[in-house]
Design a protein around this nucleic acid. Structure first.
Length: 603
DNA sequence: GTAGGGTTAG
């Protein structure tokens, strides 16, 4: 009777549970009654599993330690339990203890599949390869669970897709998990095309569609921004009745959000009968950039539905606040984050650094950054971008050096941040040094964005010839971001001929960019060539293309007023003009000469 | 009595 009660651990209250646990510690009394010749360790294993399922890790370990003769099932339950609770290192330590115990217990296929999951969780290729060797020695590689787990480990740890694929090829009778795992490995590595190739192969080999492989295939479409493929799979989802699966629908929402289909995402979202927190997070993230106001509205509806926001929710909501630059709202969300104990989450803290910087409060960004216990490359980048946009280029650069000293390896995006900081502070030679170091010390191949930054760095400082030489020396065709940076330099330094060359290149690459025509016509105007100026303007009008209006907004006593140049906000617009006049006076006092040519009526 | 794949944050 007592044993039957113990097996039902998850359903009991904590007080009852604690008292039971207190009695359970005496293992031999409970599990080895006088009439039983051998300890029924399978019952203890049952309880261990229940403990892990309810997160009672310490109790599981205590009970395990009490078992006099641990068999392979008990060891496997411990390794699996730790790994399921995301305690992968503990699972690994357990495996090592098992192998060293010297009691003749050998790992089986259950032990290996759980151990490989732990290696994947630790992102340790060396541990995974050790398990692989041992599994080979003990002849369990033919087991489908072991094969699939091995493939997953290789595909995740250090991106060894070559080895993952070799394992996949060796699996004789692949099952649906084998296919899903291989598609997921490709997709999670950012190779959506590869994921879809495998998905297509899976269909050719007449493997069945299921919610698992469909979710990851849609995620692959999202990663390559292909709404065309995404819609095809959406149609298959509809046909097979997988629309009742929340993860499948969440994937579809995410795909539409990332593939310029926000209205379609919204339609699907409203059609869902059941939604979880990931559904809401996906939509909030989808609206965060293009319609941050709606993202914040969604947050309110989520709370109204009684769901609990998590760190993903706040990361997106804080990003929405940053895009609107509404400090008061951001502070309120920050309070909510602290009340829920989510302030220590890395993603949330990174978003807060960015939000405070974009809302003009760089001091709070610094405070959050300095108080973080763990920082990743995004934390350092966010702080550097913040410093850069506040005109503190030197602080941004100092931070880069500090980051390297702390052992964080810079990625491509950090270099974008440091180059921008150098560019806006006029630290041209420092910027060029970082550009060279990126290639020689960190083996990062510069892409269009990086070249655009360096062209901007040289161009702003008036070193336009060097900027042009850099463009000429690029190992690939410069895109519109590179020529755009060059065009900006020509405009700033009134180099009409070179500017026309740059503008024509941008127009060749993206003929629909109205902003380029504007810059182009301004160059003619600056050059006094009014006939050419009129011709471009006429062309622009004929295209029906309109440069998107630069929108500004101001927060006055908790109300936000948004406007474009020449807009009328009733009597309140006077406040804005008054503020602009005061800024102009400040500029004159500081002996800055405002460039009024950049002002365009109605834009 | 012990093992598996999918969805959200820069």
């Amino acid at each position: 009777m007592i044993l039957r009660k113990l097996v039902k651990v998850p359903n009991i209250t904590s007080r009852t549970h604690n008292s039971l646990h207190h009695r359970m510690l005496n293992f031999s009394t409970l599990f080895n009654p006088p009439f039983s010749p051998k300890p029924p360790s399978h019952l203890a294993t049952n309880v261990i599993k229940s403990y892990f399922e309810t997160g009672r890790v310490r109790e599981a370990r205590t009970l395990f330690d009490e078992i006099p003769e641990r068999d392979v099932v008990a060891w496997s339950a411990m390794i699996s339990g730790y790994s399921s609770c995301d305690l992968h290192t503990e699972a690994w330590v357990m495996l090592r203890e098992m192998l060293r115990a010297g009691d003749g217990v050998q790992p089986n296929e259950f032990t290996f599949s759980s151990a490989l999951k732990a290696c994947k969780g630790m992102n340790s290729l060396s541990c995974g390869a050790l398990v692989h060797a041992l599994a080979l020695k003990l002849g369990v590689l033919g087991n489908i669970y072991v094969g699939n787990a091995l493939m997953d480990m290789y595909g995740t740890c250090c991106s060894r897709m070559d080895r993952a694929f070799a394992v996949f090829e060796e699996i004789g009778a692949k099952n649906s998990v084998s296919w899903t795992t291989l598609i997921a490995c490709h997709t999670h590595l950012g190779d959506g095309h590869g994921g879809l190739r495998v998905f297509r192969q899976m269909l050719l080999e007449e493997a069945e569609l299921n919610p698992f492989n469909v979710s990851i295939a849609i995620s692959a479409c999202a990663s390559i921004s292909s709404q065309v493929y995404g819609r095809q799979i959406h149609a298959a989802v509809f046909k097979r009745g997988f629309e009742s699966s929340i993860p499948v629908m969440n994937s579809i929402l995410d795909m539409y959000c990332r593939c310029n289909g926000l209205s379609e995402a919204s339609r699907c979202f409203h059609g869902m009968t059941e939604r979880d927190i990931i559904t809401w997070n996906t939509m909030i993230a989808g609206y965060e950039k293009s319609d941050p106001y709606e993202a914040i509205n969604l947050y309110s509806s989520l709370e109204f539905e009684g769901l609990t926001p998590n760190c993903f929710t706040f990361t997106s909501v804080i990003a929405a606040v940053a895009n609107m630059a509404v400090l008061g709202v951001g502070e309120q969300f920050h309070g909510g984050i602290l009340r829920r104990g989510l302030g220590d989450d890395l993603g949330v803290a990174n978003a807060l650094i960015d939000m405070y910087a974009k809302c003009g409060n760089i001091m709070n960004s610094c405070k959050i950054f300095n108080e973080m216990h763990v920082k990743n490359v995004v934390s350092w980048t966010s702080m550097m971008v913040g410093y850069g946009s506040h005109g503190h280029g030197k602080e941004a650069i100092a931070l880069f050096d500090k980051m390297v000293q702390s052992g964080v390896r810079p990625d491509r995006i950090v270099f974008v941040a440091v180059l921008n900081a150098c560019s806006h502070t006029g630290l041209v030679d420092e910027g060029l040094r970082y550009f060279k170091s990126m290639v020689s010390n960190y083996n990062i191949t510069p892409d269009q964005e990086i070249y655009g930054c360096v062209v901007d760095l040289l161009g702003r400082a008036g070193r336009v010839k060097e900027a042009y030489e850099l463009i000429e020396a690029m190992p690939f065709m410069p895109d519109e971001s590179v020529w755009g940076a060059f065009l900006g330099a020509c405009k700033a330094h009134k180099l009409a001929e070179l500017g026309k060359l740059a503008a024509s290149r941008v127009l060749e690459l993206r003929p629909s960019v109205a902003g380029t025509y504007m810059a182009f016509s301004n160059l003619y105007a600056a050059d006094g060539k009014w006939g050419d100026y009129a011709r471009i303007r006429k062309l622009l009008r004929r295209m029906g293309s309109k440069k998107e209006a630069g929108r500004s907004w101001i927060e006055v006593r908790n109300d936000i007023y948004s406007f474009v140049a020449g807009d009328k906000l009733g009597s309140r617009i006077e406040w804005v003009y008054e503020a602009v006049d005061i800024l102009g006076l400040h500029m004159k006092e500081a002996r800055h000469n405002p460039d009024l040519e950049c002002l365009e009526d109605g834009t």
